[in-house]
Amino acid sequence: MFNKIFEILKIISLSKLTRVIVFSLFVIFLTLGLLESLILSPEDYLQSDAVRIMYVHVPAAWISLGIFSFIAFLSLGIYIFKNKNFVIIAKSFAPSGLVFNLIALVTGSIWGKPTWGTWWAWDPRITSMLVLFLFYILYIASWRLFENDKAEKISSLVAIAGFVNVPIIKFSVDWWASLHQPSSVKILSETTIHSSMLTPLLLMTAAFALFSVLIFLMKYNIELIKIKTKGLDRL
């Protein structure tokens, strides 16, 4: 049954129509998101316009964490059950995760200078995000450095090991005294972002998620072409 679902998903992923739809949705959400975050949303009472950096920083951090967790989950299937479909999916999601992780680090640094007064601090949240970045690099490098079976084994173990860092990132601001502020968007208690600022944040998250799906679809297609034309391992 699972194989049938995969076949259907594969056909959807490979069709050009899917890419066109995802791209159009991405453009719509990005336009709305930028309009909200740059023009329509108010400035913050304390940090004034610097708050607008948050509309890129927070979604980028969320997406990079989400993608890494998803890769780690797929890696369980890759390592234990040798699922070949998971291999291509996990491999194709990694680049956008890495890029969003880098964006989160850089925008955080740009925000840190005017508000905290420093570009960089060895704060638990920032350091653990840097560790995630290193795990992304290790993950992608292990696909490049090793061949077929070995690459599958090593990269999935890297992802599984790196997943231990994900709860550390999430709870770093609660467990230790940190410079980084605690979470504002919470599941169990009330959100501490005013609704006029939450709208652009969620719109930008949707735009970034669609962007990663778009990049994923392109990568996925390339990976399948590579498999079809064996012997060609890099385009």
Binding site: W116, G117, A121, L179, Q181, I193, H194, M197
Partner: peptide, 15 residues
């Protein structure tokens, strides 16, 4: 060196 800490509250000035 003095660093300012920001808390988790974000809101417009009017609020």
């Amino acid at each position: 060196k003095i660093l300012a800490k920001h808390d988790e509250n974000y809101m417009p000035p009017e609020v």
